[in-house]
Design a protein around this nucleic acid. Structure first.
Length: 118
DNA sequence: TATATGACGACGA
DNA sequence: ATCGTCGCCATAT
């Protein structure tokens, strides 16, 4: 029997990424981070049932549509540092401070103090 | 098909 | 604390 030489394809080529169930779990997890707390990319991945997929979380957040209501600003890297840059980083810092999360001059949040502990 | 590149992270020196 | 290395994996080139 010859095996079809077709590789598995991403479920629906052409459908919006938001339709992907993996993507949805990540979004749902970020949505569960309480106001005033922050989580790391790796932590979000873990909570979403996707261990070691931190980069995927970053990729999903970086491709959110403009005007998304998701609290993407509550996600920082494992060191507590804002991982975005430029105008996005300034917006993230602004939003965090606006909800009572201190961000130091280097763009760092104290995870021991404001980290999300589900 | 091969390499490079990230909104990352764990680890060892 | 800082740095390099490696693992990770979807996209881009």
């Amino acid at each position: 029997m010859s095996i079809p030489r077709t590789r598995p394809r991403p479920a629906a080529p052409g459908l919006p990424a938001a339709a992907d169930p993996i993507h949805q779990r990540i979004v749902a997890t970020v949505d569960s981070i309480p106001r005033g707390r922050v989580a790391s990319y790796g932590q979000v991945a873990l909570e979403a049932g996707l261990p070691r997929r931190a980069r995927l979380v970053g990729r999903v957040l970086s491709s959110l549509p403009q005007g998304s209501k998701l609290a993407w600003h509550r996600v920082v890297n494992a060191a507590g540092l804002i991982s975005t840059s430029g105008a996005v980083a300034r917006e993230q810092r602004r939003r965090l401070r606006a909800e009572g999360v201190p961000v130091d001059v280097r763009g760092r949040v104290d995870l021991a103090e404001h980290g999300w502990r589900p």
